[in-house]
C-alpha cells in the first residue's frame, strides 16, 4: 500500500501518502500502522483512523494537558487514561506534579511508541513520578474508586474512538467511576471527537457528564489531522475556581511554569471555551437540526 485512506466516514476521506512504513501490525481485529508522511512526519493509524501525527500532535496534547492543569493551579496527582503514544505524559510531566499514573491497555503500544514515535514521549516514560499501569482503563477506575487511595487532581482521558478498543471509555459507568477517582476540586477532561462530523459524540458525552459535574462544558481546538475543523474536549469539574480563572491568574501560572508551548497560551485557554454556533446548536438537538448535525 502506498497510500493510506482514512475510513472514518463514508462520503469523504483524507488520504495520506505513505513515504516510509516503520511499523505495521495486524491482529484479528486490529490494524496499527506507523509511517512517515512528508507533510506530517510520523503518523500513527489504528483501524483505518489517524491517531496522531508528529506535525500537529502538539495542539491536541497541549490543550488536553495544560488547560485542566493550569486551570486547577495546584494539580499534584494526575491520571492519564490511554495516551500510549506518550505525548500526553510528556506535557503532564512539565508541571511540578508529585505523581502521575498512566493506564494503558497494552504494553506493546507503549514499547512501539517509544521506538517508532520517540518524539511523542521524549523520555517521559523514564520520569520517576510515573506509575505506568497496564490495564483496561475501565477496570482501573472501577478498582481505584473502591481502593481509598488518594484521589487525582486531574484526570485526562486520552482515548481512541468510541468504536474500538476505547469504547468502554465512553460508557456511563466509566464516567461515574472516574468521578469517584477525582478529588473534590479536581478536573476531568476527555477527547471528544470532531463535532462537525461527529455531533452524536458531543451529545452522548454531555448526557453522561452533565449530571456528574456542576460545571460540564466543552472547549475546542483545531487539529488538522483530525479532519473536520474543531476537535472538542469535554470538561467536567465541581471546582468553580478552575472553571473561569482570571486571565491574569493563568498568565501568572503559565509564566511560573516557564515552558515553551506552540498552541497553548493563556488567551487561547480562555478563548477555547467559546464554541462555534454549530457546536452549540448540536448540543441541543431538535428534529430541525438532525441533518445539520451530521
Amino acid at each position: 500500500m502506498k497510500h493510506f485512506k482514512e475510513t472514518l466516514y463514508d462520503a469523504v476521506c483524507q488520504e495520506y501518502r505513505i513515504d516510509k512504513m516503520y511499523f505495521e501490525s495486524k491482529t484479528s481485529h486490529q490494524h496499527l500502522m506507523i509511517f512517515h508522511n512528508a507533510q506530517l512526519g510520523r503518523v500513527m493509524t489504528l483501524d483505518g483512523i489517524v491517531q496522531t501525527t508528529e506535525a500537529d500532535e502538539f495542539i491536541y496534547h497541549e490543550m488536553l494537558a495544560h488547560v485542566p492543569m493550569l486551570a486547577h493551579g495546584e494539580a499534584k496527582r494526575i491520571l492519564i487514561i490511554g495516551g500510549g503514544d506518550g505525548g500526553m505524559l510528556r506535557e503532564v510531566v512539565k508541571h511540578p506534579i508529585d505523581h502521575v499514573t498512566q493506564v494503558e491497555i497494552d504494553q506493546s503500544v507503549v514499547d512501539m511508541a517509544i521506538e517508532y514515535l520517540p518524539k511523542h514521549s521524549n523520555g517521559a516514560y523514564q520520569d520517576p513520578r510515573l506509575n505506568l499501569v497496564i490495564d483496561d482503563g475501565f477496570n482501573f477506575v472501577k478498582n481505584f474508586a473502591a481502593s481509598g487511595e488518594p484521589r487525582f487532581d486531574v484526570i485526562i482521558s486520552d482515548s481512541t474512538d468510541p468504536i474500538g478498543p476505547g469504547e468502554v471509555l465512553f460508557s456511563d459507568d466509566f464516567y461515574q467511576y472516574a468521578k469517584q477517582c477525582l478529588a473534590d476540586d479536581g478536573v476531568m477532561v476527555t477527547q471528544n471527537g470532531v463535532p462537525f462530523f461527529q455531533a452524536d459524540e458531543l451529545q452522548n458525552t454531555q448526557q453522561r457528564m452533565s449530571s456528574l459535574y456542576s460545571d460540564m462544558r466543552f472547549y475546542c481546538a483545531p487539529v488538522p489531522s483530525y479532519y473536520g475543523g474543531f476537535m472538542t474536549f469535554a470538561w467536567g469539574t465541581d471546582n468553580t475556581g478552575a472553571s473561569a480563572p482570571e486571565l491574569s491568574v493563568l498568565q501568572q501560572r503559565f509564566s511560573a511554569l516557564g515552558i515553551k508551548t506552540r498552541y497553548y497560551n493563556p488567551a487561547i485557554h480562555g478563548a477555547s471555551f467559546a464554541l462555534p454556533q454549530y457546536v452549540i446548536d448540536s448540543l441541543t438537538p431538535s428534529t430541525d437540526n438532525v441533518e445539520n448535525g451530521q
Binding site: 475510513t7 481485529h29 486490529q30 490494524h31 483505518g48 452524536d200 451530521q294
Partner: peptide
C-alpha cells in the same frame, strides 16, 4: 473498525441499529 462504511439494510429494525453509527 475494519473500515467498511457502506452497509445494506432492508427494513426499519435494521435501520435503527445504525443510528449510533450514522455519522
Amino acid at each position: 473498525r475494519f473500515g467498511a462504511t457502506t452497509f445494506v439494510v432492508d427494513n426499519l429494525y435494521e435501520l435503527k441499529k445504525l443510528v449510533n453509527y450514522r455519522s
